[in-house]
Amino acid sequence: MSRVAPTSGSKALYFLCITLSAFLLYLDINYKSFERAKNLYKSFTISSSYTIKRITLDPLNYIFEISKEKSKLIEENKKLKQELDNSYIANFILSRDSKFFIDDEAIKKFLDLNKINKPFHLAKINSFDVEKYLCCSQHRMFIKIFNSKDINFIGSTVINDQGILGQIIYDKSIAEILLLTDVSHVMPIISNNHFCNARGSGKPGVITCNYSKLIWPDPIEIGQEFFSSGMGGIYPSNILIGYVSSINAIDDNNIHFDIDLVANPLKSSFIGVLEKL
């Protein structure tokens, strides 16, 4: 049976649909009109996948564990788990993941090394779109903060044991982090006499800077260290951000250079959230 080519009526409907799509696209890109619905959907998928995992995989793991271990060992294990539960009943994830404490110590060590006295809260990565991180300009991460109580974390610095990852831009049940490499992110950084506002490049692990030789005559060198200046009021100062990896002259006076970040968001599933400065 042959298909009929679109009539003028159906063409008008196609045109209307495409126009409506363009309008929705404009609203979403310029005004973020659908952010709430998107975040709601993300929260729903994260919590439902967690629930499904708890219902399906966890019992299977448990059965597997039982079949492997001797009953005496299981009893002992249970006792130990119970003791651990009692000790850290405030958060059930705390009780299950020994790696949590390792990450906690690592972040504490990082804060001590950098002489940051701000209290921090541990958080676990709930969702991170690696596809977008590797291919696209929007670099966001969704985390669950432990023991957050009623603290508003919007604008708080997020770190791991390597360094600064970004800042929180949305904080409800799941917090959203704007990573340093996101193209919409700007951060003031400093190195000796050089100061610049580093922008996210949209490439994983790279931020970029522009400066004029007329303002800072000292040359930039490959491998030069850059630190947070603390001037934006978001990030603590004097934290190592990264090393200059490539330098390109735009013209006689203007220089563009890339900085490879020291902190990799893919390294650990646990991160720290500093209380606001």
Partner: peptide
């Protein structure tokens, strides 16, 4: 998690193209 309207526009365009040239 694409911008709302992006796939809607592209799917509509594709449907129009396929319908137009189906024969």
């Amino acid at each position: 998690s694409s911008p709302i309207g992006l796939n809607a526009a592209l799917f509509s365009m594709m449907a129009y193209a396929v319908n137009s040239y189906s024969n």
